[in-house]
Nucleic acid binder design. Structure first.
Length: 527
RNA sequence: GGCCCGUUCGUCUAACGGUUAGGACGCAGGAUUUUCAUUCCUGUAACACGGGUUCGAUUCCCGUACGGGCUACCA
């Protein structure tokens, strides 16, 4: 971008602001939309797009809208819409308006707006900015086979079957016959199309490079291009925040706004950088989940086959807050060194200017770190609520007081929620795996009498609390000339089977006096 | 191929002409912890390349290389 362009951009904004002031009040409030297609599970990149839209709306006291773009009947997947809504609820990105959330600009599902698009498509034809085309997909495919870079545009349309090339009576006859017909955008040559992108600045396209995009398909449904312009206009969208893959077609979108005479209220655009694979080339795909052993979807998705089924952040044991925090920083930075943000804090700090321009690699290690941190800083009562269903599934006890104790003991040494009941299983059920190498290292048959005596001591401790137990054990070690290194590891092994874990005496308390004594005795038999 | 976008430690990124190029993850080392983890400290490591513009370029411009996206009656 040259200095001149930058200057022009600034000028443009000044003009735009001036215009905005002259517009009615309805243009003043921010309205953004998240517009996914229900073709399967919502990709994590889609969640990030939703997040940025949500944050932008919150930041500016605006409205966050969910619109379902289901104009491709062939790619429709049952359950996908429900999945999208559930994913938004789980992450806390709850729409103010949209499918399932009400609002005055509905319907918000594009398949329910079919008639609207047809009306506008025909209006565009009447205005001379679009035309009918009768070429079949097969014919076009043949053209592409025959010609390397075949494009439907002003150079080729004269030789194709459309209302611009065919005689009026033939066109009318085609129309009357009910033969398959599409409506295409008539791209006029010789125009510079400027897209003032909030993230990238001024992006220029030559209209002669653009093809005559299909606006209304033969099945009567609109393509994305038509539907998104009509809806954004009708729904009063002020800012379009979407993935970078849409940048090239934005030129067409600008042409559509012009064609409809809506350029004055055209939304501002912000194209987000893509999320890339952890390693190698290309953008993150659903297959990368299995490849790198990590989820790339917010929620698990159950497909028809195992290959079409995918794990989710939720099921892996991520807290939604950690997931959001992680995603927020993937392609955006707050302008400070702060790393930990609640949703509200993110909304406060958010600004489009701080969205990055280049693609961000999906860094699962960082995601792990966020989750670990969030678990550490989450209240035991809240954690208990997360642990309960996991414990239930394993048939473990689930009383509140106990689960809170488990949370307290384990929260500083787990990464994912299931770790509480997996790594810390010995808090719920008897030890099933002993670290035999460690036992060999620490056990000595000569220790047996002392160990038996110690069990008796522990049996006596009352009340059975950590300081009291510790005191008793300390005293015992002193009297028997034993070192902590001789005794403590054995106690730990007896209670947990492993050298990893919470402080021994804390564990003993959580297990309870009876269970502690029982485990010590069982250990004596085991070894 | 054409069009468009991008390029700072391994990764996420800060810097908006003058800095010992900052932070975080990861990794390494140390302290604390009679385990593990946490916590704390320290270290490691980057301006893709070549031309300009400028007193001075990571920063502005051009080019090259590399990466990415789009190129459907998919979104």
């Amino acid at each position: 971008m040259s200095v001149l362009y930058a200057k022009n951009t600034a000028n443009h904004y000044r003009v735009a602001r001036k215009k905005a002031r002259q517009q009615p009040a309805k243009r003043m409030s921010v309205r953004v939309r998240f517009a996914p297609s229900p073709t399967g599970a919502l990709h994590i990149g889609g969640v990030r797009t939703a997040l940025y839209n949500y944050l932008f709306a919150r930041k500016h006291g605006g409205t966050f809208i969910l619109r379902i773009e289901d104009t491709d009947q062939n790619r429709f997947v049952p359950g996908a819409e429900e999945y999208i809504i559930e994913a938004l609820k789980w992450t806390g990105l709850v729409p103010d308006e949209g499918v399932g959330f009400g609002g005055d600009f509905g319907p918000y599902r594009q398949s329910d707006r079919k008639a609207i698009y047809q009306k506008y498509a025909h209006e565009l034809v009447a205005r001379g900015h679009a035309y009918f085309a009768f070429d079949t997909p097969e014919e076009l495919e043949a053209k592409r086979q025959a010609e390397e870079n075949f494009t439907y545009n002003l150079h080729t349309r004269a030789g194709l079957k459309n209302s611009l090339a065919l005689p009026a009576d033939v066109v009318q006859q085609q129309l009357d016959s009910g033969a398959p017909v599409v409506i295409r955008l008539k791209v006029e040559p010789g125009q510079d199309i400027h897209v003032r992108d909030l993230v990238r600045g001024d992006v220029v396209f030559q209209s002669s490079e653009l093809d005559d995009k299909v606006l209304l398909k033969a099945d009567g449904m609109p393509t994305y291009h038509l539907a998104n312009i009509v809806d954004d206009h009708l729904m009063g969208i002020t800012h379009v925040i979407r993935g970078e893959e849409w940048l090239p077609s934005t030129a067409h979108h600008v042409l559509l706004y012009r064609g409809f005479g809506w350029e004055d209220t055209m939304p501002q655009f912000a194209h987000l950088p893509l999320i890339l694979k952890p390693e190698g080339n290309g953008k993150l795909s659903k297959r990368d989940g299995a490849k790198f052993g990590m989820p790339v979807f917010p929620l698990a998705w159950v497909g028809k086959t195992p290959e079409e089924s995918f794990p989710g952040f939720r099921e892996t044991g991520f807290l939604p807050e950690a997931t959001i925090n992680f995603l927020a920083l993937l392609g955006w930075h707050p302008g400070s060194d702060q790393e930990i943000f609640s949703l509200d804090e993110l909304a406060q700090a958010f600004s489009v200017e701080h969205i990055g321009k280049s693609g961000a690699r999906f860094d699962f290690e960082k995601a792990r770190w966020f989750n670990q941190r969030y678990i550490q800083h989450t209240a035991n009562t809240v954690l208990a609520g997360h642990i309960r269903p996991l414990a239930e599934a394993k048939g473990y006890r689930t009383d509140e007081a106990f689960l809170e104790q488990v949370a307290a003991l384990m929260k500083e040494r787990v990464t994912f929620l299931p770790d509480f009941v997996e790594q810390g299983y010995y808090l719920f059920e008897p030890v099933h795996t002993y670290d035999n190498d460690m036992i060999r290292k620490k056990w000595n048959p000569a220790l047996r009498p002392a160990f038996e005596a110690l069990i008796q001591e522990i049996r006596q401790v009352a009340p059975f609390e950590a300081p009291a137990i510790e005191e008793k054990v300390q005293q015992f070690m002193q009297e028997n000339a034993l070192k902590p290194g001789d005794v403590l590891p054995l106690l730990r092994l007896a209670l947990a089977g492993t050298m990893k874990g919470p402080a021994v005496f804390d564990m003993a308390v959580v297990l309870g006096q009876a269970e502690t004594v029982q485990r010590l005795q069982r250990f004596l038999e085991y070894k």
